[in-house]
C-alpha cells in the first residue's frame, strides 16, 4: 500500500523527497561533528577604537582600552569593557570620553568551538560614560558630565587559532541623558549642554585581539 503510494508520486513530489533525504543526511553528518561546548570561556583582550564622529561633529577620535569576555553558551558571549577616547574638535577643543560597560554577543552561525576561521555576530549592550570637553588653552573653559549609553552593532571574530581571535566590530553608541558638546563658530567655541541627547552619539570602530585563558565551568560534551 505504502510502496504503491510512493510509486504513485508525481515528478515534483519525488524531487521534494530527494531534497528532504539530502537534508537529513546533511543534518546527520553535521551531528557527527561534535565540538566541546564553549560555555564558561574566559577571554582577555585589548582594543583599539576609532570614533568616526561624535555627536554629529565630523571629528575623529582615537581610543584604547581592554575587555574580558565570559561566554555563556555556544552562541552567546558577554563582553565587559573599559576604554578611553580622545577627540580633537577642529583644533579648538578636546573631548575625552571614558566608557565602562558590557555587551551581549550573539553568534550568527555555530562557532564549532571556534574552529571556523570567521564567526560573525551581532552585539548590543550598555555602558556608563564620563565626558569632558575642554576648550584649548591654558585657561580654557571645561565642562563634564556623567551619563549612560546604549550601543549596538555587528562584528566578527577572525579565529587565528581556536583560542586567539582578532575581532573587528562596528557599533553605534547612543548617549542617554544630557548632551554635552562644543559649538564651534567663527568667533570661537562655546560649550553647550542640552537636556536631551537626541539620537546623536558615536560611531565606533573597534579592533581587538583576545585570548581564551580558561574555561570557568565545564558544560559537558555535546551528545
Amino acid at each position: 500500500m505504502f510502496y504503491g503510494h510512493l510509486l504513485s508520486f508525481k515528478q515534483p513530489d519525488m524531487r521534494i523527497l530527494i531534497f528532504l533525504l539530502a537534508l537529513l543526511q546533511f543534518s546527520l553528518a553535521e551531528a557527527q561533528n561534535t565540538f566541546e561546548k564553549q560555555g564558561g570561556n574566559f577571554s582577555l583582550g585589548m582594543r583599539s577604537t576609532v570614533s568616526a564622529f561624535s555627536h554629529g561633529e565630523k571629528n575623529v577620535g582615537y581610543g584604547a582600552g581592554g575587555q574580558f569576555r565570559i561566554q555563556l553558551t555556544d552562541r552567546i558571549n558577554t563582553e565587559w569593557f573599559l576604554d578611553v577616547l580622545s577627540t580633537n574638535i577642529e583644533n579648538k577643543a578636546q573631548r575625552m570620553d571614558y566608557h565602562v560597560g558590557w555587551s551581549v554577543m550573539y553568534y550568527l552561525i555555530d562557532p564549532r568551538a571556534f574552529t571556523r576561521k570567521v564567526t560573525p555576530y551581532v552585539v548590543a549592550g550598555h555602558c556608563f560614560d564620563f565626558t569632558k570637553i575642554s576648550i584649548n588653552g591654558n585657561n580654557g573653559d571645561a565642562q563634564s558630565r556623567f551619563s549612560s549609553a546604549v550601543q549596538a552593532g555587528v562584528g566578527f571574530h577572525y579565529n587565528i587559532t581556536p583560542k586567539l581571535d582578532l575581532s573587528p566590530q562596528v557599533q553605534y553608541m547612543l548617549h542617554l541623558g544630557k548632551d554635552l558638546h562644543a559649538h564651534v563658530t567663527d568667533e570661537g567655541v562655546e560649550l553647550e549642554e542640552h537636556a536631551r541627547a537626541g539620537w546623536e552619539g558615536h560611531l565606533l570602530f573597534n579592533l581587538s585581539m583576545n585570548y581564551k585563558f580558561a574555561q570557568l565551568w565545564k558544560p559537558g560534551k555535546k551528545s
Partner: peptide, 22 residues
C-alpha cells in the same frame, strides 16, 4: 600591552605580529 601571534610553532626563527594599544 596586548597579544602577539607567532605563526611558526617551533625552531630558531620566530616571526610575530600583534596588536597592542597603549
Amino acid at each position: 600591552s596586548g597579544f602577539n601571534y607567532h605563526p611558526v610553532k617551533k625552531g630558531r626563527w620566530d616571526p610575530f605580529i600583534g596588536l597592542s594599544p597603549g
